[in-house]
Simulated scan of single mutants.
Amino acid sequence: MEKNSVQAEIASYTGKLFRDNFGKGPSSVYVSIEHPFITIYLSDFLAPMERVLVGQKNFMKVEETRDYLMQELIPEIKATLRVTADIHVENIYYDWSLKNRSGIIVGVVKEESDEEELLSLEDYPNKDRVHEEIIKVSEQAEKAPEQVDSLFLNSRTLVVDRKGILVRIEKELIQSGFSEQLRLSKRQLEKRLLDPSVFESILDTQVMDIFVDWDFTLDKSYIILILKPKKS
């Protein structure tokens, strides 16, 4: 099956999956497949009950509910990608921008080689400055990452990979069963620190959305910047 057909099929499946489980699906789903990632960007996605909670500024309650539901959906998403698109996803990350009514799902394709080789080392303009800002934010939120890399999946999607960012108190909270509370708090903190205007200055384009998620077991994190494509 051609890449565009696969992307269209995944977009259709995702829209239906979210509509069936949330009561309302996204108005648009944008799928991008660029080894070793698959990204699914959702726009205009906010269920009626969630709209009420967001109106009451109860953002964390919405995110907590979505987290629990996503944990149920992730195995189904992985199985569907494997059967319909022959894409063997090892890990899935996700995040939401309730203000923008958008969301991101990121699948990392299973590799035969070590995970260290997942990311392309191709350069792009001001890559070092992007990494400097990511390290600065990480130091303010927890500690400087042991490793940072990034790549453009396409003209509008920049993925940043951080490894080795958890501090000892966070690891203790995870072991004590407070992973969900930690995830919710870290989302709020890091997304306040990730200033879109700084990245707009570095990348010379508008930042539409910023998403963050973690794998506490692997001690790694992905930051995804959704950019406004430049006019050619």
Rank of each mutant, 00 (worst) to 15 (best):
E2R: 11
E2A: 10
K3R: 15
S5C: 07
S5Q: 14
V6L: 15
Q7T: 09
A8Q: 13
A8L: 11
I10H: 07
A11S: 14
G15T: 03
G15W: 03
L17I: 05
F18P: 00
K24Y: 06
P26Y: 10
S27F: 09
Y30I: 04
Y30N: 12
Y30C: 03
S32T: 13
P36A: 14
P36D: 12
I38R: 07
L42D: 03
L42R: 00
S43G: 07
F45I: 09
L46A: 09
A47W: 05
E50L: 09
R51E: 15
V52H: 08
V52D: 09
V52R: 12
G55H: 11
F59A: 07
V62T: 01
E64M: 13
T65I: 10
D67T: 06
D67Y: 15
Q71A: 14
E72I: 06
P75Q: 09
E76F: 14
I77K: 03
K78W: 11
T80C: 13
R82M: 14
T84R: 15
T84W: 10
A85M: 12
D86N: 15
H88K: 11
N91G: 02
I92L: 15
Y94R: 01
S97P: 01
K99C: 03
R101K: 14
S102G: 12
I104Y: 02
V106N: 02
V106T: 09
V106S: 02
G107A: 06
V108Y: 02
K110L: 08
S113M: 03
L118E: 08
L119T: 03
S120Q: 03
L121M: 11
L121P: 00
P125C: 10
K127V: 02
K127E: 07
D128W: 10
V130F: 01
S138D: 02
S138L: 04
S138F: 04
S138Q: 04
E139T: 04
E139P: 01
E139D: 06
Q140M: 11
Q140V: 05
A141Y: 08
A141L: 11
K143Y: 13
A144I: 01
D149W: 07
S150W: 07
L151A: 11
S155N: 13
T157D: 09
L158H: 06
V159W: 02
V159E: 01
R162K: 15
V167R: 13
E172P: 00
L173S: 06
F178D: 01
Q181L: 12
Q181T: 07
L184R: 08
L184A: 14
K186I: 04
K186D: 10
L189R: 06
L189W: 02
R192A: 13
S197K: 12
I202Y: 14
D204E: 14
Q206V: 05
M208C: 06
F211N: 00
W214P: 03
D215V: 04
T217G: 13
T217Q: 12
T217E: 15
D219M: 03
K220A: 04
Y222T: 00
I223Q: 00
I224Y: 00
I224R: 00
L227P: 05
P229K: 10
K230S: 08
K230H: 07
